[in-house]
Nucleic acid binder design. Structure first.
Lengths: 338, 338
DNA sequence: CTGAAAGCGCTTACAG
DNA sequence: CTGAAAGCGCTTACAG
């Protein structure tokens, strides 16, 4: 690779001048600028980003730490949004590899030694010590779905509460009263808000919350299957289930089908996320849509704004959610049929 | 961030000595080594990778260029394999963002200015000018599914031909003779080999290839749906379809169902890839399994070997494939029923 | 408008 | 065993 020196020599100017034309400084004569530009083209010169970063203290890089599987559809959609926003931004996405062989491994130190300009995080437990360290580090950070803010950190999330309320309302309008809530952990903002949405939704339709109908599991298919298995063992099983992820809903539906019951005839099921799977799955899922790609894009846009303006303190952004009715919910059947 | 100078001053040694202990050089006395190590811990010092890279001419970074959507299940599984192999390797994955606003954008120049140590590529058209440039650049490159080699480039793929042959054999054994082949483009190695597998598979079962049964489309659900629509319009429609991706198979099945026919009763369908979708989809897909994650991991391992040994010329690796029989294939029905 | 020089945080011969 | 110095490829005051 040609270096700035090669260009300078070839063009008969100093490296300082070359640097100025690269960076579009105004104090260069048109003639020199033209000469240098031509030489750059001729030599196929491209600035070494690491060298530039070394002096500027930057890397034009955004760090991300994918702790879950890439096959997780939420992650996948989020990355797609991130990718889109990164396009033309001048930043590249650095996917930081964990080092499990090192017990002292620190995500933040990794970011620091890589000199990333910002970090986008998701799926991080709010008690994760890495998170606290990150917040302390003053590296600009955008969190997805974690209700945590810092001097240089903000977050973005979905209207979780109203999303679930819409789901409950839909079921109530279909005549259901024995509505179950199958959720991921409740010890974080997302879990809490969705649970609140469930409780309030039930209340506003004068429906009572049966504690046996609230099942906490994890967001996977297996989690949904496990919860559903337990629900089916109940004396009086629910006629409708609100799940907090599409994968959980799919897991639940599989269990229902395997038990000889059908969806939505016997039990209505609602998912959450509106990932690609929810449409492909058959029956197509009724689900709460969240604009995951927008969340990803917005997170990056905000992060870049934070990076480029040290005084910028972003406010929390909440993307709207809405219910998408497809084929897994139906009118409650005649009670005698139960 | 503390720099090497801070550590040197604090420990009362020269930066050269600090560098030596960081890099585990032997010519440092135990005493100094201990002293320096302690200071490093105390100051939470971590070497700046960009600075080190500048002098070493490396970046400990592998570049990747995701041109398709992250939601593509093949890509997703591949990245998961890549991620796994990168763990503990000391390399991070740099996801290069394209710059569509710049018509002169060059992937290779992007790699060069980022100084990536190697590139893993997939889904690249063999005629893509970027690819040629990449091969010329001498940046170590591992391609997935592109049968292209270079001084510093190799590829890894699946046993495509035998995979399809197994699929055809399975259908033939079920009594099918009107077997269709729905594929992505044939102008690349993968497409060609799969097509060969189809033709040979048919021949070895004494079945004739009906040109009207060969449909070329793209690997998406829409592609499969489009091809299937055309097949259903045929006077004598096929009784079985081999698709070259799971998504195509899903698209095809949806069309079959919508037309009032059923899978596998009326038409058997086989997919390719054995992605997560194929299990979740209902009916669960009979499909040709390829070890996508292994391919991803293997690609990285080979790439790192190439990076760290300039003389290493890897041979082509072909991962085995095998048919996974699930619910979308069945015995041919009585001919009179057609 | 142009360029010499210092410096970003490292590594590496080389001298001692 | 230790360290001074040059250099990796850039940018940025600063002087002219």
């Amino acid at each position: 690779m040609a270096s700035i020196h090669d260009v300078a020599k070839e063009a008969g100017v100093s490296v300082a001048t070359v640097s100025k034309v690269i960076n579009n400084y105004p104090d260069v004569s048109d003639k020199t600028r033209k000469k240098v530009s031509q030489t750059i083209k001729k030599l196929k010169y491209h600035p070494n980003v690491a060298a530039r970063g070394l002096v500027k203290g930057r890397s034009w890089t955004v760090g991300v730490f994918v702790t879950t599987s890439f096959t997780n559809p939420f992650v996948t959609e989020l990355l797609e949004g991130i990718k889109t926003a990164l396009q033309n931004s001048g930043y590249d996405l650095l996917h930081l590899s964990t080092r499990f062989d090192d017990p002292t491994y620190s995500f933040v130190e990794h970011c620091l030694s890589r000199n990333v300009d910002g970090v986008v995080g998701f799926g991080i437990d709010r008690n994760d010590p890495h998170l606290e360290e990150l917040l302390d580090s003053d590296i600009p950070t955008m969190l997805v779905d974690s209700d945590i803010q810092g001097r240089r950190a903000a977050y973005i999330t979905t209207e979780n509460k109203t999303g679930i309320m819409q789901a409950v309302a839909h079921l109530a309008e279909l005549g259901h009263s024995r509505i179950s809530f199958v959720s991921g952990e409740l010890d974080n903002a997302v879990g809490q808000l969705r649970h609140e949405g469930y409780v309030e939704g039930m209340k506003s339709h004068k429906l009572s919350v049966n504690p046996a109908y609230v099942k906490i599991s994890d967001y996977s298919m297996e989690g949904g299957a496990q919860a559903m298995t337990e629900l089916l063992e109940l004396e009086e099983r629910p006629t409708a289930v609100v799940c907090t992820s599409d994968m959980m809903a799919i897991g639940a539906i599989n269990v229902i089908h395997r038990s000889g019951l059908s969806v939505p005839e016997d039990i209505s099921v609602i998912g959450f996320d509106n990932t690609y799977y929810s449409e492909i799955f058959s029956p197509a899922l009724t689900t709460v849509n969240q604009n995951i790609r927008s969340i990803g894009s917005h997170a990056i846009e905000t992060l870049i704004a934070m990076i480029e303006n040290a005084d910028f303190t972003p406010s929390v952004v909440t993307e709207p959610s809405n219910l998408v009715v497809r084929c897994t919910t139906a009118q409650l059947r005649d009670k005698s049929a139960l």
